[in-house]
Write a protein that binds this DNA or RNA. Structure first.
Lengths: 121, 121
DNA sequence: CAGCATCCGGGATGATACTG
DNA sequence: CAGTATCATCCCGGATGCTG
């Protein structure tokens, strides 16, 4: 079991207010971040594909999410000088490493979601 | 690598809009949910201890978060009929199972957060 | 096709005060 | 100590329209 104290280790300021890790956690575990990363874990995706696969996301949030994850070095954006324009997104090496942890977590949640009745609030 | 298609498996509606798993994901991976769960992974905690350990959380959000996680069956609330009142929170068996996945993820993020420059947005 | 700019409403969140 | 109630605020995120 990995606990807060273990994660903090020698640096007690880890995960306190203003700590950078909190920011990254917010990016990665955000409402749309998880789903976009999950979709990209499957392979390279174009803008339109993501838009369709991540059901319910708006263009604004897709753009915002992709920019954040790209800036974090988890996603690579590759644009081709063609007409019509084509842009592809894929996970970076670091992104794939992240997904090796995030994937199983989401998988577990999906498997057990139906037993969790607390959908209020 | 666990991808969206793999998670969806035989049920294509998994993780689409309105799917219960999205709700649970939002609870578990919420800004404060992660930190509260992480603190409880260390052991039983009282209200005041959580308030101090999860730095920056307001009483309102602590209460709301604990109620949600309790309703999801991840946290157990135990109150003692004493004066002054004492209430203890701890992970349920399901909660500990969840943390076996969530813990390593957060651990990895903390270890790599300093390399992720994109703190904008 | 791939995206950005702008507006704006509502739920999420914080601050404060109060109760058992 | 362990909360709840109320109010003010903020910013997330949806809708729309436009550009390269």
């Amino acid at each position: 079991m990995v606990s807060l104290a273990q994660i903090r280790g020698e640096d007690p300021s880890t995960l306190t207010a203003g700590c950078p890790s909190r920011t990254v956690i917010d990016h990665v575990m955000s409402k749309w971040g998880v789903l976009v990363l999950l979709s990209l874990a499957e392979g390279t995706r174009r803008w339109g594909e993501l838009r369709r696969e991540v059901e319910g996301i708006s263009e604004k949030m897709l753009g915002s999410t992709l920019r954040t994850l790209t800036a974090d070095g988890l996603v690579l954006r590759r644009s081709f000088p063609e007409v019509p324009p084509r842009v592809e997104y894929e996970l970076t090496e670091r992104g794939r490493e992240l997904m090796s942890h995030l994937g199983p977590l989401v998988h577990w949640i999906v498997d057990h979601a139906h037993e969790m009745v607390g959908t209020t609030d």
